[in-house]
């Protein structure tokens, strides 16, 4: 006899969104309940609706969005790190007034980019996540300030506008991807 099973796409969605630790155990619990209780008692259709409801209770928008945003965030982090190094080097070559302060800011940008790239390894550490959150907010504000200055200033500098937009995006993405609610896969 072929055992009844929930729709494959639905089970796939559940497995995709569960943390590795819970993937087998929770999906197994739901499958057991589906086969032993829901299908015999209510039939396949209602059992599928039940399975869908349970899946939705375990899955959040963040779980679905997070993995999709992971690659863009990693790409942007590489860009931020490279841009930070480039800005720091240029400031030290040109040595305009106040270059030392701007060099420090550029170095912080590069550090934040590198730190975000380390998220998959250090995600579980609360102190790292807190520092990353503070960095992401600072980075976003820094980017927003740069964009505002370029838009209102007399000289338009395309690369500053680009870097500013990237910093704002990275700040937002970091907060969304790294600080999702529990029960989803971490980055």
């Amino acid at each position: 006899m072929i055992e009844k099973a929930p729709p494959r796409w639905l089970e796939g969605m559940l497995l995709h969104c569960l943390a590795a630790r819970d993937r087998e155990t929770i999906s197994g619990d739901l499958l057991e309940e589906y086969r032993e209780e829901q299908v015999p008692r209510f039939g396949s259709l209602r059992a599928n609706v039940w399975y869908l409801c349970q899946t939705l209770s375990l899955v959040s928008v963040w779980d679905l969005l997070g993995p999709a945003l992971k690659m863009p965030l990693m790409g942007i982090s590489v860009f931020t790190a490279a841009a930070g190094v480039w800005l720091a080097v240029m400031e030290n070559i040109l040595q305009h007034t106040g270059y030392a302060g701007r060099t420090v800011i550029a170095a912080c940008m590069a550090l934040q980019g590198v730190a975000t790239l380390l998220v998959p390894m250090l995600d579980g550490r609360a102190i790292f996540r807190a520092l990353l959150a503070a960095g992401a907010v600072a980075l976003g504000l820094c980017g927003a300030a740069a964009v505002e200055r370029i838009m209102e200033g007399p000289h338009f500098e395309g690369f500053v506008l680009l870097i500013g937009c990237v910093l704002v995006t990275q700040g937002l993405l970091t907060v969304v991807v790294v600080f999702r609610p529990r029960h989803g896969k971490m980055l």
Partner: peptide, 12 residues
């Protein structure tokens, strides 16, 4: 270990 009804998936 899990049972066959749960396709052998682990129980926590």
């Amino acid at each position: 270990e899990g049972t066959p009804v749960r396709a052998g998936r682990l129980r926590r």
